[in-house]
Design a protein around this nucleic acid. Sequence first.
DNA 1: GGCTGTGAAATCGTTCACAGCT
DNA 2: AGCTGTGAACGATTTCACAGCC
Lengths: 253, 253
Amino acid sequence: MATGRTHRPATRSRGIPEATVARLPLYLRALTGLSERSVPTVSSEELAAAAGVNSAKLRKDFSYLGSYGTRGVGYDVEYLVYQISRELGLTQDWPVVIVGIGNLGAALANYGGFASRGFRVAALIDADPAMAGKLVAGIPVQHSDELEKIISDNGVSIGVIATPAGAAQPVCDRLVAAGVTSILNFAPTVLTVPDGVDVRKVDLSIELQILAFHEQRKAGEEAAAEAAHPAAAHRGDSTEQGPDGDVPAVMPA
Amino acid sequence: MATGRTHRPATRSRGIPEATVARLPLYLRALTGLSERSVPTVSSEELAAAAGVNSAKLRKDFSYLGSYGTRGVGYDVEYLVYQISRELGLTQDWPVVIVGIGNLGAALANYGGFASRGFRVAALIDADPAMAGKLVAGIPVQHSDELEKIISDNGVSIGVIATPAGAAQPVCDRLVAAGVTSILNFAPTVLTVPDGVDVRKVDLSIELQILAFHEQRKAGEEAAAEAAHPAAAHRGDSTEQGPDGDVPAVMPA
DNA sequence: GGCTGTGAAATCGTTCACAGCT
DNA sequence: AGCTGTGAACGATTTCACAGCC
């Protein structure tokens, strides 16, 4: 259900699974690290370890992109960096606006990894007139009256919402009406958007609640570990990293 | 679903799917909203709409918790709020420490939704001696030398890492050694943790890259929409919200 | 009549294991 | 010999559709 791809428009056999797309940035980061250390090639095993997944999954993921490896050898780091960047659309520059320059919005604007790979903060927007003109991360904050003009003048298609929950939906509506088709929502609300617009959310309290659930379960099982040896108690999976099995589905709501 | 119909204390309903756990906070939020508006009952259809999922999924999710609804009527809002809170472990108070009080750490400390539901910021920790003693969100920042003592004195089991990428793994190791078993990682790195420790990550640049992928694909399909009517172009799914189909897998690494 | 609870079917994602290239 | 690429098995999640209760 992720990205509704009802029927294939062209003859493209391009169906990269959402779960794979969600891991490509992880691989890219690991590869960038190797690239900086001038490592020429990696095996699926090594790269998988660096990205925190298992090698079978990584090979399967890469197989959706094409055959970019060499049997008996591994993958060429530079070549893979390029291929994945291209696939993710990072070879072009994406202007982004951040709406809601409070604590969080300011932190996001200051976040380094933002500009690094393909993204550029085109504007900061806030509803508070007192904020207008102030510099945050070296960028002047503009009043939300200008929102539509900013979007259109800069050709912005990605918007980040860091407003309070109550303001998020109206802001979202205006962004979409102005032409934004991808939204990253930090406000703790469900956003409703028309078809063809992607929304992803980042929600601190949801993450904490999920952790609390597991934490509680651990406490319960700990208590149940009276009969067994007083030492070893946990079961659990492999050494795999957390939100890797992530499939945060992006839907053209 | 399971076996017995009555509440089994020891034989607790084994194994709620991860995907379901990840949605419970969403339902809880929607229910809290209804509760504040004094709505007594909701149908699966209404609640699903408020949470941004479809009703079949919601009913299936609730079926894992037990039979908390009434056929022909719907769900009692207050009762469900209680049941889900209990299931998520929110009826108890979870002390949390935030490590790394930079822009992001400060924003997180100031985040309201933090304290609201079951979580309490027990301490703020930073490696910079100049930060020590400063008040952030009304809480004094403590130096990281105190980390182990803070964790143990406060019985902290959940830690939030908001340090630069390079510091994340060492901080993580210390948190885990001190007794933390759940970590929410905002640093752009893969964390390695022992079995029994859960890690979830929140990563701005990964989210943006996933959006860029879809954005790029839209641009491509737009170009392919020459043959068809110059108007309608998008297909896509229902009105469902984004990261709901989320399965951010938490693994007892 | 309306709405929940749930088997069964469909879909999606992961893991296995090995054929095939270098 | 080593390591990728991938069909096939497996497992998890979503959706369907309807029986069962109010």
